[in-house]
């Protein structure tokens, strides 16, 4: 059902044009945060207004949209955003990663590799990777201009001095095409390697902070590290209890009050596809792997 009172995908065409201009600029300068005139959306700031504006600017009536939060299609906010676009754009939706043309995500990159022609839209809370080192926008913009990233390396070094390793588990900073240090949004660092050389277009929208940035297809994206402390993409050291996958990112679920736990794929489409193919995990109803 499309709401006739609103334009296709909610935003008016002028606004979409403004956002598309910002997107093109962002793609031309990979990793650079482009200020844009973020609009108020009918969902709260911090709940995906940036991603929703980017998605609205990208959608055409022929698109097939997938929305995930924490990797899952059925989390409440993913349901809410998917419904929003069903209602205002009337586009087809899907839960299958491979079938989607536009995927809006919060906190994950799908397990299934993306392909050319797909657009991955990230919801971004704080676009500035240097923000927690320097709260002032006026200062951090200057630091990016001058390519002055020493502060970030000092922070990573201090982590190692204090904890023996870099104590950042998500929103792990990357450098794009050897130039801009970029916040990949709060994805687990397990997902960082998928940012690099990805055939899909990766767009990042921060509504409250009014910034858009992008990683064009097949870009060079490097997670910051040191030669003697190389970056490691880590995850829970388990297999999925439902599909048996050993290589996917897992959610930990506490199943009783005595600390019993199960681990399941955070990517629901990935897990369901594997189960449909006959893969089994420790707690699958039909028992262990056939």
């Amino acid at each position: 059902m499309t709401d006739q009172a609103y334009n296709f995908a909610y935003l008016d065409e002028q606004t979409k044009r403004m956002i598309r201009r910002a997107l093109l600029k962002a793609l031309a300068i990979p990793g650079y945060q482009v200020p844009f005139a973020s609009r108020e959306m009918p969902m709260p700031y911090g709940w995906g207004t940036g991603g929703a504006q980017v998605t609205a600017a990208c959608l055409t009536p022929d698109d097939r949209l997938k929305v995930i939060d924490q990797g899952a299609d059925d989390t409440t906010n993913a349901v809410s955003i998917r419904r929003f676009f069903q209602r205002t754009a009337g586009v087809e939706t899907t839960e299958r990663t491979a079938e989607a043309t536009v995927i809006q995500t919060r906190h994950r990159i799908p397990e299934q590799p993306l392909s050319e022609g797909q657009i991955l839209v990230y919801q971004v809370p704080i676009p500035e990777p240097l923000r927690f080192l320097e709260p002032r926008e006026t200062e951090t913009r200057k630091m990016h201009e001058l390519e002055e990233y020493g502060l970030m390396h000092v922070k990573l070094y201090e982590d190692i001095a204090r904890h023996g390793e870099i104590a950042t588990a998500y929103a792990y900073p990357v450098r794009v095409e050897g130039r801009y240090v970029m916040d990949p949004s709060p994805i687990p660092k397990f997902d960082n390697p998928k940012l690099a050389g990805n055939p899909a277009i990766q767009l990042f929208g921060a509504g409250r902070e009014a910034r858009i940035y992008a990683v064009p297809p097949y870009s060079d994206v490097v997670s910051l590290d040191f030669e003697d402390h190389p970056f490691v993409a880590s995850k829970a050291d388990h297999e999925c209890d439902l599909c048996g996958s050993a290589g996917s990112y897992l959610d930990e679920v506490i199943t009783d009050d005595r600390g019993t736990r199960m681990f399941v794929c955070s990517d629901t489409d990935f897990c369901a596809s594997r189960q449909a193919q006959g893969h089994r995990g420790r707690l699958s109803p039909q028992g262990a792997t056939p």
């Binding site: 924490q70 906190h107 994950r108 998500y170 687990p188 930990e252 955070s266």
Partner: peptide, 13 residues
Amino acid sequence: LPHYVDFQAELEL
């Protein structure tokens, strides 16, 4: 909103 993915990453760390 759910943050299990980030929390899981911190938990592992």
